[in-house]
Computed example of a mutant assay.
Amino acid sequence: MAILEVNDLSLKFGGVKALDQVSYHVEKGEIFSLIGPNGAGKTSMLNCISGLYTPSSGSIKFKGQEILGMKPYNRTSLGISRAFQNIALFAHMSVLDNLKLGRHVRMKSGMFKGGMYWGGAEKEEVSHRRSVEQVIEFLEMQDIRHTPVGTLPYGLQKRVEVGRALALEPELILLDEPMAGMNSAEKEDMARFILDMHELNGITVFLIEHDMGVIMDLSDHIAVLDFGKRIGFGTPEEIQKNSEVIRAYLGEQEVTT
Protein backbone atom coordinates (compact mmCIF):
# COMPACT_ATOMS: atom_id res chain seq x y z
CA MET A 1 0.00 0.00 0.00
CA ALA A 2 1.38 3.39 -0.99
CA ILE A 3 1.85 5.82 1.90
CA LEU A 4 3.00 8.61 -0.44
CA GLU A 5 1.85 9.20 -4.01
CA VAL A 6 3.35 11.92 -6.19
CA ASN A 7 1.63 12.47 -9.52
CA ASP A 8 2.68 14.78 -12.37
CA LEU A 9 4.37 17.19 -9.96
CA SER A 10 5.87 20.33 -11.49
CA LEU A 11 7.66 23.23 -9.83
CA LYS A 12 8.79 26.41 -11.58
CA PHE A 13 11.00 29.29 -10.48
CA GLY A 14 10.33 31.91 -13.14
CA GLY A 15 11.30 30.23 -16.40
CA VAL A 16 13.24 27.44 -14.71
CA LYS A 17 11.56 24.04 -14.22
CA ALA A 18 12.92 22.57 -10.99
CA LEU A 19 10.52 19.62 -11.29
CA ASP A 20 8.83 18.54 -14.51
CA GLN A 21 5.77 16.26 -14.22
CA VAL A 22 7.41 13.85 -11.79
CA SER A 23 5.46 10.79 -10.63
CA TYR A 24 6.32 7.91 -8.27
CA HIS A 25 4.96 6.22 -5.16
CA VAL A 26 6.44 5.15 -1.83
CA GLU A 27 5.22 1.94 -0.20
CA LYS A 28 4.36 1.92 3.49
CA GLY A 29 7.23 0.60 5.62
CA GLU A 30 9.95 0.70 2.96
CA ILE A 31 13.19 2.63 2.51
CA PHE A 32 12.73 4.73 -0.61
CA SER A 33 15.59 6.74 -2.11
CA LEU A 34 15.60 9.70 -4.47
CA ILE A 35 18.89 10.17 -6.29
CA GLY A 36 20.33 12.26 -9.09
CA PRO A 37 23.09 14.76 -9.92
CA ASN A 38 23.42 18.04 -8.03
CA GLY A 39 20.66 20.39 -9.12
CA ALA A 40 18.40 17.55 -10.27
CA GLY A 41 15.52 18.70 -8.04
CA LYS A 42 15.85 16.31 -5.09
CA THR A 43 15.68 18.86 -2.26
CA SER A 44 12.99 20.78 -4.16
CA MET A 45 10.94 17.59 -4.07
CA LEU A 46 11.31 17.33 -0.28
CA ASN A 47 10.37 20.99 0.03
CA CYS A 48 7.17 20.28 -1.88
CA ILE A 49 6.31 17.26 0.26
CA SER A 50 6.99 19.07 3.54
CA GLY A 51 5.12 22.22 2.45
CA LEU A 52 7.99 24.69 2.10
CA TYR A 53 7.39 25.02 -1.66
CA THR A 54 4.09 25.20 -3.52
CA PRO A 55 4.19 23.18 -6.75
CA SER A 56 3.01 24.72 -10.00
CA SER A 57 0.84 21.68 -10.72
CA GLY A 58 0.35 18.04 -9.78
CA SER A 59 -0.68 16.10 -6.70
CA ILE A 60 0.89 14.79 -3.49
CA LYS A 61 -1.17 12.33 -1.44
CA PHE A 62 -0.22 11.02 1.99
CA LYS A 63 -2.16 7.92 3.05
CA GLY A 64 -4.63 8.69 0.29
CA GLN A 65 -5.22 12.30 1.38
CA GLU A 66 -4.25 15.26 -0.78
CA ILE A 67 -1.81 17.42 1.19
CA LEU A 68 -1.12 20.20 -1.29
CA GLY A 69 -2.39 23.43 0.24
CA MET A 70 -1.81 22.21 3.80
CA LYS A 71 0.50 24.17 6.10
CA PRO A 72 3.76 22.41 7.06
CA TYR A 73 2.64 21.93 10.69
CA ASN A 74 -0.56 20.25 9.51
CA ARG A 75 1.52 17.80 7.48
CA THR A 76 3.57 17.13 10.62
CA SER A 77 0.41 16.34 12.57
CA LEU A 78 -0.53 13.80 9.88
CA GLY A 79 2.75 11.95 10.44
CA ILE A 80 5.41 13.53 8.18
CA SER A 81 8.68 14.83 9.64
CA ARG A 82 11.92 16.02 8.09
CA ALA A 83 15.64 16.29 8.79
CA PHE A 84 17.38 19.00 6.78
CA GLN A 85 20.57 18.77 4.74
CA ASN A 86 21.82 22.02 6.28
CA ILE A 87 21.59 21.60 10.03
CA ALA A 88 18.75 23.69 11.45
CA LEU A 89 19.35 23.29 15.19
CA PHE A 90 19.61 25.79 18.07
CA ALA A 91 23.36 25.75 18.68
CA HIS A 92 23.26 27.24 22.18
CA MET A 93 20.69 24.73 23.43
CA SER A 94 21.40 21.20 24.63
CA VAL A 95 20.65 18.03 22.68
CA LEU A 96 17.76 17.34 25.05
CA ASP A 97 16.26 20.81 24.68
CA ASN A 98 16.52 20.71 20.89
CA LEU A 99 14.57 17.46 20.81
CA LYS A 100 12.04 18.70 23.36
CA LEU A 101 11.47 21.88 21.39
CA GLY A 102 10.64 19.91 18.28
CA ARG A 103 8.40 17.62 20.29
CA HIS A 104 6.39 20.55 21.72
CA VAL A 105 4.73 20.93 18.33
CA ARG A 106 2.51 18.12 19.57
CA MET A 107 1.52 19.85 22.84
CA LYS A 108 -2.28 20.05 22.85
CA SER A 109 -3.55 20.70 26.37
CA GLY A 110 -3.12 23.12 29.27
CA MET A 111 -0.97 26.23 29.25
CA PHE A 112 2.46 27.49 30.22
CA LYS A 113 2.79 30.25 32.82
CA GLY A 114 5.72 31.63 34.78
CA GLY A 115 8.03 28.77 33.85
CA MET A 116 5.58 26.06 34.97
CA TYR A 117 3.06 23.90 33.15
CA TRP A 118 -0.52 23.94 34.39
CA GLY A 119 -3.49 21.70 33.83
CA GLY A 120 -3.21 18.77 31.44
CA ALA A 121 -0.01 20.16 29.98
CA GLU A 122 2.01 18.98 32.99
CA LYS A 123 1.14 15.33 32.37
CA GLU A 124 1.57 15.81 28.66
CA GLU A 125 5.06 17.25 29.21
CA VAL A 126 6.05 14.12 31.14
CA SER A 127 4.81 11.96 28.27
CA HIS A 128 6.70 14.03 25.70
CA ARG A 129 9.90 13.88 27.79
CA ARG A 130 9.58 10.09 27.84
CA SER A 131 9.34 10.02 24.03
CA VAL A 132 12.40 12.27 23.72
CA GLU A 133 14.42 10.04 26.04
CA GLN A 134 13.53 7.05 23.86
CA VAL A 135 14.95 8.86 20.82
CA ILE A 136 18.12 9.74 22.75
CA GLU A 137 18.56 6.09 23.67
CA PHE A 138 17.77 4.89 20.14
CA LEU A 139 20.40 7.19 18.61
CA GLU A 140 22.90 6.43 21.39
CA MET A 141 23.19 10.03 22.57
CA GLN A 142 22.87 9.43 26.34
CA ASP A 143 26.30 10.88 27.11
CA ILE A 144 25.66 14.14 25.24
CA ARG A 145 22.03 14.84 26.20
CA HIS A 146 23.00 17.98 28.19
CA THR A 147 25.74 19.15 25.79
CA PRO A 148 25.14 22.35 23.76
CA VAL A 149 24.62 21.26 20.18
CA GLY A 150 26.99 23.91 18.81
CA THR A 151 29.95 22.31 20.62
CA LEU A 152 29.40 18.86 19.12
CA PRO A 153 31.30 17.42 16.13
CA TYR A 154 29.47 17.76 12.83
CA GLY A 155 28.55 14.07 12.66
CA LEU A 156 26.82 14.19 16.03
CA GLN A 157 24.99 17.37 15.06
CA LYS A 158 23.61 15.51 12.03
CA ARG A 159 22.47 12.77 14.39
CA VAL A 160 20.64 15.33 16.56
CA GLU A 161 18.98 16.74 13.42
CA VAL A 162 17.66 13.27 12.60
CA GLY A 163 16.67 12.80 16.26
CA ARG A 164 14.51 15.91 16.24
CA ALA A 165 12.60 14.53 13.26
CA LEU A 166 12.24 11.16 15.00
CA ALA A 167 10.96 12.82 18.18
CA LEU A 168 7.76 13.70 16.30
CA GLU A 169 7.00 9.96 15.99
CA PRO A 170 6.50 10.12 12.22
CA GLU A 171 5.04 7.51 9.93
CA LEU A 172 7.13 9.01 7.09
CA ILE A 173 10.52 10.60 7.73
CA LEU A 174 12.25 12.67 5.05
CA LEU A 175 16.05 12.52 5.33
CA ASP A 176 17.97 14.99 3.15
CA GLU A 177 21.58 13.75 2.89
CA PRO A 178 21.88 12.60 6.53
CA MET A 179 25.40 11.27 5.90
CA ALA A 180 26.85 14.34 4.16
CA GLY A 181 30.16 15.37 5.70
CA MET A 182 30.48 12.23 7.82
CA ASN A 183 33.46 9.90 8.07
CA SER A 184 33.15 6.16 7.37
CA ALA A 185 32.39 5.18 10.99
CA GLU A 186 29.71 7.87 11.31
CA LYS A 187 28.13 6.74 8.03
CA GLU A 188 27.99 3.17 9.27
CA ASP A 189 26.24 4.31 12.44
CA MET A 190 23.71 6.39 10.50
CA ALA A 191 23.02 3.51 8.10
CA ARG A 192 22.36 1.27 11.09
CA PHE A 193 19.97 3.82 12.62
CA ILE A 194 18.08 4.13 9.32
CA LEU A 195 17.71 0.35 9.08
CA ASP A 196 16.55 0.16 12.70
CA MET A 197 13.96 2.94 12.38
CA HIS A 198 12.68 1.09 9.32
CA GLU A 199 12.80 -2.49 10.64
CA LEU A 200 12.21 -2.03 14.38
CA ASN A 201 9.92 1.00 14.42
CA GLY A 202 8.10 0.50 11.13
CA ILE A 203 8.84 4.04 9.91
CA THR A 204 8.77 4.65 6.17
CA VAL A 205 12.05 6.31 5.19
CA PHE A 206 12.41 8.72 2.26
CA LEU A 207 16.16 9.14 1.72
CA ILE A 208 18.26 11.50 -0.35
CA GLU A 209 21.93 10.53 -0.34
CA HIS A 210 24.92 10.69 -2.72
CA ASP A 211 26.73 7.62 -1.39
CA MET A 212 25.63 5.01 -3.95
CA GLY A 213 26.94 2.13 -1.87
CA VAL A 214 24.60 3.14 0.95
CA ILE A 215 21.70 3.73 -1.45
CA MET A 216 22.01 0.35 -3.14
CA ASP A 217 22.42 -1.49 0.17
CA LEU A 218 19.52 0.16 2.03
CA SER A 219 16.85 0.94 -0.53
CA ASP A 220 13.79 -1.09 -1.46
CA HIS A 221 12.96 1.23 -4.37
CA ILE A 222 14.74 4.16 -6.00
CA ALA A 223 13.59 7.06 -8.16
CA VAL A 224 16.13 9.00 -10.23
CA LEU A 225 15.85 12.66 -11.23
CA ASP A 226 17.86 14.54 -13.84
CA PHE A 227 17.16 18.21 -14.63
CA GLY A 228 13.83 17.92 -12.81
CA LYS A 229 12.60 14.91 -14.79
CA ARG A 230 12.20 11.35 -13.57
CA ILE A 231 14.47 9.12 -15.64
CA GLY A 232 14.26 5.95 -13.58
CA PHE A 233 12.18 4.13 -10.98
CA GLY A 234 12.57 0.61 -9.62
CA THR A 235 14.56 -1.68 -7.37
CA PRO A 236 18.32 -1.12 -6.87
CA GLU A 237 19.00 -3.94 -9.34
CA GLU A 238 16.75 -2.35 -11.98
CA ILE A 239 18.29 1.09 -11.47
CA GLN A 240 21.82 -0.30 -11.88
CA LYS A 241 20.82 -1.72 -15.26
CA ASN A 242 18.93 1.36 -16.49
CA SER A 243 20.92 2.75 -19.43
CA GLU A 244 19.51 6.28 -19.08
CA VAL A 245 20.41 6.40 -15.39
CA ILE A 246 23.89 5.09 -16.17
CA ARG A 247 24.49 7.83 -18.72
CA ALA A 248 23.11 10.63 -16.53
CA TYR A 249 24.38 9.67 -13.09
CA LEU A 250 25.78 6.28 -12.14
CA GLY A 251 28.42 5.79 -14.83
CA GLU A 252 29.64 2.49 -16.23
CA GLN A 253 31.96 1.76 -13.32
CA GLU A 254 29.10 1.87 -10.76
CA VAL A 255 27.27 -0.87 -12.66
CA THR A 256 30.19 -3.22 -13.28
CA THR A 257 31.62 -3.20 -9.72
Rank of each mutant, 00 (worst) to 15 (best):
L11F: 10
F13I: 01
G15F: 08
Q21Y: 10
Y24N: 05
H25D: 15
V26T: 02
V26E: 04
V26H: 02
E30V: 09
I31L: 11
F32M: 06
S33A: 12
S33W: 05
N38H: 11
K42Y: 03
S44N: 04
S44G: 02
G51Y: 03
K63T: 10
E66P: 03
I67K: 00
G69R: 07
G69D: 05
M70F: 12
T76Y: 11
G79C: 03
S81W: 02
F84R: 10
L89W: 05
F90I: 10
F90W: 06
F90M: 10
L96Q: 09
N98T: 03
G102W: 04
F112S: 13
Y117I: 02
G119M: 04
G120M: 10
H128Q: 15
S131R: 14
F138Q: 00
I144K: 11
T147Y: 12
T147Q: 15
V149H: 02
T151E: 14
Q157N: 02
K158V: 05
R159K: 15
R164Y: 03
R164G: 02
E169L: 14
E171L: 09
E171C: 05
I173C: 05
L175M: 11
L175V: 06
E177H: 03
P178I: 00
M182E: 06
K187C: 14
I194H: 06
D196E: 14
E199R: 15
G202A: 04
V205F: 02
V205N: 00
I208G: 06
M212S: 09
V214Y: 07
H221T: 13
F227E: 10
I231F: 06
G232C: 06
G232N: 05
P236R: 01
E237Y: 10
S243E: 15
E244R: 15
Y249D: 04
Y249F: 12
